[in-house]
């Protein structure tokens, strides 16, 4: 661990740039929110500060996901370049090895702006918290990170079955941002999709509504960890099936 910190500290300029650019990529949505609320006070009954709170909350599970599940270039690195063969010769579960190899703990810093935004919005809304809310928060964050992990591991698994390059990942990324808006603004097909098919709503509006005291969403908020574990298990099963089919590229 100390060794890990040292190696990362050697490249601190890179670290800063990487962190800044990660935050900038997320900030596009923040600017969108701020600009839109310059012209309207309520979005389907939700105020600017409530929307900011959801946005801030989202950044935390997203940072946890980014730190542990760095799978963006899985297809390039492990399938095309044949790294997968090396991983499979070892006696530890392949997914677990890849997660350890690709871990980027510095991405956890991405949670800091999220917490700041939550504090800002929370204090303006004068939200009240219980002592146990800290544990609820941790539980919901883990649930949200598992949902992200489940979806993106499943997407990475596609590489085992189809050898074409996939451009799905960046697009999925786009869809994930719709889970941060109150889902009742959408047509029920989209709402259903964001809840049960690509459950991004569980990484945004559902869990955040617990802290915003929106009682009507409590049921969904508490489902977050369950959905997270479920999607993660499905992803691992898909992964195992994929590994069994894996033949290598012959490189």
């Amino acid at each position: 661990m100390a060794q890990y910190m040292k190696t990362k500290w050697q490249y601190r300029a890179d670290l800063l740039i990487e962190w800044l650019s990660d935050f900038m990529a997320q900030a596009v949505n923040l600017v969108f929110l701020l600009v839109v609320f310059g012209h309207t006070t309520l979005l389907h009954g939700w105020s600017r500060d409530e929307m900011l709170f959801i946005y801030g909350f989202f950044l935390v599970p997203y940072a946890v996901f980014g730190a542990f599940f760095n799978l963006w270039d899985f297809n390039e690195r492990y399938i095309v370049q044949g790294e997968m063969d090396r991983v499979l010769t070892r006696p530890v579960h392949s997914l677990f090895q890849i997660i350890l190899e690709r871990m980027e703990l510095e991405s956890l810093l991405g949670a800091v702006p999220g917490l700041i935004i939550m504090l800002y919005a929370g204090s303006r809304l004068s939200l009240s918290f219980h002592w146990y809310d800290v544990f609820v928060f941790i539980l919901l964050v883990i649930g949200g990170a598992l949902i992200y992990a489940g979806i993106f591991i499943s997407l990475a698994t596609i590489s085992f079955f189809a050898d074409a390059r996939t451009s799905i990942m960046p697009m999925m990324y786009n869809i994930s941002s719709y889970g941060r808006y109150p889902v009742d603004i959408y047509h029920r097909v989209i709402r259903y999709m964001l809840t049960w098919v690509l459950p991004f709503a569980f990484v945004g509006v559902y869990p955040a509504s617990y802290f915003l005291h929106k009682q009507e969403w409590y049921g969904y908020a508490f489902l977050t960890p369950v959905v997270g574990v479920l999607f993660f298990i499905i992803a691992v099963m898909l992964w195992n099936a994929g590994v069994r089919r894996y033949r290598g590229t012959g490189s």
Binding site: L43, S167, M171, M172, Y178, Y181, I185
Partner: peptide
């Protein structure tokens, strides 16, 4: 798949703007 995901994206935007 690109066309499908584009369609989902644009419809989500449509509902978002309707709400705005």
């Amino acid at each position: 798949t690109g066309i499908l995901i584009y369609a989902i994206n644009i419809s989500a935007y449509y509902f978002l703007w309707s709400a705005i």
